[in-house]
């Protein structure tokens, strides 16, 4: 068992010098309306909002209105490089995001495969090194691969964000062994399960594995009631966090009676 490798995730982890109030990072895309987005964030008590950069026509004020809304949420902002397929695209986008959003945090995505949106881990490591050397605080969207994780840490990353499952799939944790191994190999690096979660129980499971936070978007924004789902995730994340703190029992193969045998009547 790897019980002893569990971190006490109730202790707030340090994300590049920032201790988050809650281990919940929530995306801002695909909500039915800005008002519902704001309500979902209120119910989630999320500490971090992920954002992006896109082209905007000069007459269109949507981006400017969106940015004002995000600033009112009173959360940390984590810009992403979503949609980037090359190191150059990702690095350039990161620079643009740093200027617009006023933060050195960057959720680094270098996509390598279209069907799964699996990261191009080779490009990811290279981009992470370039950006870390340039003062960025990189949150790399990666797989659970231990060797890639090691390269990312060597490149300067002090947070790792392994996927749970492909982005937007809602499949949950596809490789529990891999995530558990990642936790065991990197006990001092904050780990965030990013992408693929569909249900609150999966977020609880991620926290029970000793993850330091979860990041999700679609599971909340595409729910019938995003605000209610945000609250459900918040409760599940808290439950998983408490479970780790409570020091869970070690599973066993054989039954063990919970009711004491001693003092049982002989009634044969």
């Amino acid at each position: 068992m790897m019980k002893n490798s569990f971190n006490d995730s109730s202790a707030k982890r340090d994300f590049y010098g920032v201790q988050l109030e809650t281990p919940f990072m929530l995306g801002t895309a695909q909500y039915p309306s800005p008002a519902i987005l704001a309500k979902a964030f209120e119910q989630s008590k999320a500490s971090v909002a992920t954002v992006s950069l896109r082209r905007e026509a000069s007459g269109d004020k949507a981006g400017q209105d969106f940015w004002r809304l995000i600033q009112q949420l009173n959360v940390h902002v984590l810009p992403n490089t979503a949609g980037c397929h090359t190191v150059k695209e990702a690095v350039t986008t990161a620079h643009m995001a740093r200027e617009v959003f006023g933060t050195s945090w960057i959720k680094l995505e270098v996509i390598g495969e279209e069907d799964t949106l699996q990261p191009d881990v080779f490009g990811l490591v290279e981009a992470a090194r370039i950006l870390s050397e340039d003062g960025f605080q990189v949150f790399p969207y990666t797989t659970e691969d231990l060797v890639v994780a090691d390269r990312l840490v060597n490149a300067g990353c002090r947070v790792l964000m392994p996927w749970g499952a492909p982005i937007g799939s809602g499949m949950g944790l596809n490789n529990i062994f891999g995530l558990r191994a990642l936790r065991a190999h990197f006990p001092d690096i904050p780990l965030v399960v990013d992408a693929g979660l569909g249900l609150p129980s999966q977020a609880a499971q991620a926290m029970e594995l000793g993850m330091d936070a979860v990041l999700l978007n679609t599971a909340v924004s595409k729910a019938g009631d995003p605000a209610m789902m945000a609250e459900a995730f918040a409760n599940a994340i808290r439950a998983g966090q408490l479970a780790v703190k409570a020091d869970p029992m070690v599973p066993r193969d054989m039954a063990s009676p919970s009711t004491p045998i001693l003092g049982k009547a002989f009634l044969d």
Binding site: G27, T28, A29, Q30, Y31, L37, T50, V51, S52, L53, R54, R55, E56, S58, A62, G63, Q64, F66, W67, I70, P79, N80, A82, T92, H95, M96, E99, V100, F101, I167, G168, A195, N217, T218
Partner: peptide, 28 residues
């Protein structure tokens, strides 16, 4: 190539240039 806000006044526009203007947007 990224052009910082502070450097925009120094960047000459030439025929055929490709300009990107990006604004904050929703993201996951």
């Amino acid at each position: 190539d990224f052009v910082t806000q502070g450097n925009r006044a120094n960047i000459q526009i030439n025929d055929g240039d490709r300009i990107e203007v990006l604004a904050p947007m929703q993201g996951g």
